[in-house]
């Protein structure tokens, strides 16, 4: 299972890099989105998949490690902020290009 997930991480990184190296900003933003999915999964993998239950106190052990999950949560939200900002930036660039004669 670990190997399968690791392969998915690799796929996400490869596809994200490929899009990032292209020349259109929206594709680049999409590439960045793929890479952040890959990074999140990598953090989760690093925390280990030994937990049988979600990290709630009510659940019996072994529980999943809460720290990677918290880190990923933060990363998702920050990633969303970046995506939104880049989209707005792309939009404005396009608008400026349109205004040019």
């Amino acid at each position: 299972m670990n190997a399968l997930l690791a392969a998915l991480v690799g796929l996400l990184f490869a596809a994200g890099t490929w899009l990032l190296l292209g020349q259109r900003i929206l594709r680049q933003v999409i590439g960045l989105g793929l890479i952040s999915h890959g990074a999140n999964l990598m953090v989760l993998l690093a925390g280990g998949l030994g937990g049988r239950h979600a990290p709630l106190l009510a659940n019996p052990t072994p529980r999943a490690d809460p720290l990677p999950q918290a880190l990923i949560l933060t990363a998702i939200v920050i990633g969303f902020g970046i995506t939104a900002f880049l989209l707005a930036l792309g939009y404005r660039m396009h608008a400026l290009e349109e205004d040019e004669p």
Binding site: A3, A6, A7, L11, F13, T17, L45, A46
Partner: peptide, 13 residues
């Protein structure tokens, strides 16, 4: 990049 990322992710486990 993808290959190295996959390898790194696997090493982490």
């Amino acid at each position: 990049v993808g290959a190295v990322a996959a390898a790194l992710a696997f090493q982490a486990t």
